[in-house]
């Protein structure tokens, strides 16, 4: 890719001046090739990130569990969670995102945080997960992960950081990432909306709830037992169900208008395509 960029002007200059329509054709061909390359690169990036999340992270967790199975559960699990976020952030930094992408992600993060603050009187009834899911659906899995993780981090800057921060960041990021993989932004039929809501309910209970509750288990036990997990999950279930119902409600309300608005911005300004 880089090499072609460098060579193209040289060869053009060396040759005698071509006719005008020929130059237009050449430019078009170049553009088409660039588009194809861009598409290929995006595909590769998607595969790499999918491999990272589906292979790298579980293997890190597995190694951690096998190597340190009876020592320092808490700190090791926290380190694993924090480290498993590094590849995502690294890849995001590495591709040097455009200013428009950054500001758009910042807006979605701020909406999530403001949503958490706006519903302060209803504990655990927050639109955070819904906004992260919609972001993942519309802007892609990478933006979904970044938005989810940063929403958790920034909202904890208002509500207090703690040992739970990395867990929440990872859980919300994962939700955004998966929604970007599983759905595209054509949520047109009622069936698709229903599927999205079902997905939202499932991930808030099954992923967010479990990950954050796991932190509670690890925080208090040296010999983690299955009964302990069950007890903590059972006691966390009501909270998770409230969060899930909030997510479903906000998905029903927000999916269509937000996807419309984001789609319009994407089309009008040519970002995240």
């Amino acid at each position: 890719m880089q090499k072609e960029f460098a060579e193209k002007p040289n060869t053009a200059a060396a040759r005698p001046e071509p006719a005008a329509d020929e130059r237009v054709l050449a430019a078009e061909r170049l553009r088409a090739r660039q588009a194809a390359e861009e598409k290929k690169r995006r595909l590769i990036r998607r595969i790499v990130s999918a491999v990272l999340i589906l292979v790298f992270v579980p293997s890190v967790i597995l190694v951690g569990l096998l190597e340190w199975h009876d020592r320092q559960f808490y700190i090791v699990s926290m380190l694993i969670i924090a480290l498993s976020m590094v590849p995502f952030f690294f890849m995001f930094e590495k591709r040097r995102p455009r200013a428009r992408e950054l500001t758009l992600i910042a807006v979605m993060v701020a909406l999530g945080v403001a949503g958490r603050a706006a519903f302060y009187m209803l504990p655990h009834f927050k639109p955070i997960a819904a906004i992260v899911i919609i972001t993942g659906v519309s802007l892609g899995s990478e933006a979904g992960f970044i938005t989810g993780a940063l929403t958790a981090f920034v909202s904890n800057m208002f509500f207090g950081q703690g040992p739970w921060t990395p867990w929440q960041m990872f859980a919300l990021g994962l939700i955004g990432f998966l929604s970007g993989i599983l759905f595209n932004d054509q949520i047109t039929t009622k069936l698709k909306l229903f599927l999205l809501c079902a997905y939202g309910a499932f991930v808030t209970v099954g992923i967010y709830g479990q990950i954050v509750d796991t932190q509670v288990v690890f925080s208090s036990a040296q010999n983690v037992t299955w009964e302990m997990f069950l007890a903590v999950y059972a006691s966390g279930l009501p909270v998770n169900l409230v969060f899930a119902s909030a997510t479903v409600l906000f998905l029903l309300l927000l999916t269509k208008p937000l996807l419309n608005k984001l789609g319009r911005i994407k089309k009008k300004h040519g970002v995240f395509r």
Binding site: F92, E93, I105, A106, V109, V113, A114, A117, L150, M157
Partner: peptide, 21 residues
């Protein structure tokens, strides 16, 4: 220093919250 884009998103999001309200 080592995550310029992320820290930019962070500071922008922090500024957006009061701006939006």
């Amino acid at each position: 220093r080592f995550a310029p884009s992320l820290s930019l998103v962070l500071s922008m999001a922090l500024r957006f919250v009061p701006l939006f309200s």
